[in-house]
């Protein structure tokens, strides 16, 4: 079936399904955001990041408190990093990679395993594009690393950390992936783009 663009209120499935960017009503599933639909697969073209258990995200230390830190997550919701879960000391403005350990019913997130990201660059993209930047089983990310020699950490929240190697090329490639996220043959096109650009 053809890829098609669906708009909020349009039916995407005859039965109730739990799909990202969709809602179920009266036994059917409808799009809630502009999405690309292909059979039962629906990929949102836009949306805000909501903390999700197990996600690795790139956050910014927002507040230092007695009991720990609040971490800004490029989302309407913050993460809480407890002193019990880290021996390291952070300061407001520090950039950290964290894992989301728990999310309560009002989207408060508990984050753990902080890793300070220093000296690199941070690129912010729409979080809905992240799966394309990573690629199937990390294939796209591998191509990016291979051609740029850059250390790339992709946060599920749309923040990307780039360090070392040809960061300019890595940035351009990531932005290109975002622009063309839902086109066919993206992997091939990015590969040839990287090959061409790294030669010049």
């Amino acid at each position: 079936m053809e890829k098609r663009i669906v708009f909020p209120g349009e039916q995407v499935a005859e039965r109730p399904l739990r799909l990202e960017g969709c809602f179920a009503e009266d036994g059917k599933t409808y799009a809630a955001v502009v999405s690309v639909a292909q059979e039962d697969r629906v990929i949102p073209l836009k949306g805000r990041y909501l903390p999700n258990y197990g996600d690795y995200v790139v956050g910014i230390i927002k507040d230092e408190r007695f009991s720990g830190y609040s971490v800004e997550l490029n989302s309407p919701y913050e993460g809480q990093l407890s002193n019990r879960d880290t021996r390291e000391e952070f300061h407001t403005g520090d950039i950290v990679l964290v894992k989301i350990m728990a999310v309560d019913e009002v989207n408060n997130a508990i984050v753990v395993e902080p890793r300070r990201l220093s000296e690199g660059e941070i690129l912010e993209v729409e979080s809905v594009k992240v799966p394309r930047i990573i690629g199937r089983n990390g294939s796209m990310l591998a191509i990016l690393r291979q051609h740029t020699g850059t250390e790339i950490i992709v946060g599920k929240n749309g923040r990307i950390y780039l360090k070392g190697g040809n960061t300019t090329l890595a940035t351009l490639a990531v932005l290109k992936i975002c622009r063309e996220a839902h086109t066919n043959g993206l992997t091939d096109r990015i590969t040839s783009f990287l090959q061409q650009e790294s030669k010049s």
Partner: peptide, 11 residues
């Protein structure tokens, strides 16, 4: 609202 990516029930 739709342009903002905020989930809605319909246009």
């Amino acid at each position: 609202l739709v342009d903002a990516g905020i989930p809605v029930r319909d246009l």
